[in-house]
Nucleic acid binder design. Sequence first.
DNA 1: ATGAAAGCGCTAACAA
DNA 2: TTGTTAGCGCTTTCAT
Lengths: 337, 337
Amino acid sequence: MVKITDVARRAGVSPSTVSYVLSGKRSISAATQRRVEASIRELGYRPHAGARALASSRSNVLALVMPLRSGIHVPVQMQFAGAVATAARGHDHDVLLLTQEEGEDGLRRMADSALVDGLIVMDVQLSDARTPLLRTLPLPSVLIGFPAEAGGLTCIDLDFTATGESCVGHLAHLGHRCVALLGSPPEVYVRGTGFARRTAAGFTGVARRYGMTSTVLPCEPSRAAARQTADRLLRDHPGLTGIVVHNEPALPLLMEAFQRAGMRIPQDLSVVAVCPDELAENAAVPVTSVAIPADEVGERAVELLMTKLNGVAVPETTLLSPRLTPRASTTVCGPAS
Amino acid sequence: MVKITDVARRAGVSPSTVSYVLSGKRSISAATQRRVEASIRELGYRPHAGARALASSRSNVLALVMPLRSGIHVPVQMQFAGAVATAARGHDHDVLLLTQEEGEDGLRRMADSALVDGLIVMDVQLSDARTPLLRTLPLPSVLIGFPAEAGGLTCIDLDFTATGESCVGHLAHLGHRCVALLGSPPEVYVRGTGFARRTAAGFTGVARRYGMTSTVLPCEPSRAAARQTADRLLRDHPGLTGIVVHNEPALPLLMEAFQRAGMRIPQDLSVVAVCPDELAENAAVPVTSVAIPADEVGERAVELLMTKLNGVAVPETTLLSPRLTPRASTTVCGPAS
DNA sequence: ATGAAAGCGCTAACAA
DNA sequence: TTGTTAGCGCTTTCAT
């Protein structure tokens, strides 16, 4: 193994000089700089992570806490993970995967063992057992998602309230008066997952403001559940002309179910979804949608964490504005052509 | 921070004794053992990961190399990742996520920096640039998947050749004579992803052995591509009565496309899939399928790696046998009822 | 069965 | 601008 003393000897400098060249923590003459860099390159030197962590109390690793709960759309989670990993590498950090089978104990373990410098926490529940712990842990953290009580925590996410509002707003402007939100499976609401609840709140609030008739229903991503939901909705609300679907795997099933029940899209029923663009574009009828900007969220989460690691304060709340892309699934409400 | 000397003092022993209690590397009297363990518990001691790694040259971290390439079904990858993470924790190891944006350099970085003890490499290509490197790296590794030339490497995967064989075999025994395999998107074949190629090889081999007419086609997971594939297949092979689909996202699209083209499932067309059970069960017609045992593969991969870390030799090749579950999508070939 | 002490490879005062 | 050196917290010989 090539170590810092080897590099130093070959460059004719002291080990500390090599260390300083690497960290940039003090100014080095151009000549020395060059000789050290050459020596590093020629020897293929790479600092021993453990030694560095021990001496500097910085591991250059951050933990990504990804619970892998049921009812959560996996590809979207994965997109977050990929974005976080990429961004972390851009800041010279690696990413440790915590699947949260360990629960809060895993977080404590990270803090005590100094394995990581900070935490990025995904799939935050409205009432999340981890948040009190995160507040007291001597480890900086950034949450992707918002708990009900976010004081003292750094959180970032798509503004789901605004997303719900934007979706109904779009339908309202097209003249729809009776609308429904079809969301995540019941378990997700029961857990109190923030994004699900917030979308519903935004949806309901604006619908009421516009004096629209509105309903919110959870939905299992099975063909049977989709049919049942569609049929029930059409029976209870014969005037229904617009739906918002916030449930990726159920989207195609629901569209199929409504069509089967005799509703043409968009002539009889306008559909807005909250889902990745790729899914929206590939549906039987391309769907008007608000995308979840996973890449941006992941990247900014890492940036927030790095800023905190450098001892600089960051805003507690970062909300990204939704962007609605109109596609073929929505149209003005009126007598069907 | 609680350190080993604190624990030792409280227990009235030397630091080395605490270390030995933790590692079990020498016998300790029952009394001492109890006092040390109590001290650890009371102080909430957890060893400093960096210090431990430096002194022992073992980080207790393993890297999961997950390229996140296009055309790969994300939920299945994630299931692998989850299984690996869980299994690793069971062996007192953590998992570092390497998304392979860094390519081979990332592997080298792991080796040089001593950040991890070993590698689990996913999404292995038939001709994979990483394999020569893995052979020479002083870091033990286990590949999930098989390169064309696997000598000197430890590999584990579902036996995809047998999977392909099992799928045609099932159709053959039901009397089908003209069959097709619809696989991953073209890019996956072009890259030479092992599992795609091997399934095709098994499929073709057995089809030929039984004297069946067989075709292999890649398939994009878009509605348009699915239709085109179905139409073209029916035009070129009017006698087609059975298909095998090895492409998760395309499965529902293909079934829909064939039905649209007038083929009833299973009366006119039998369908076998290679995909997670959940997907197979939830299709419009539940699909006869071979599941990918991601949990078992992930767990066994970790076990293989741990064994190697302990200096014990392991078999180079581990192939898990496919298990085909018959469902409603396949039936005997004959005049439609 | 236990202790003492020498590092592991690096960083960051402290000196010059 | 650079060098010297004292640790960082742990493991593991070597002694007893």
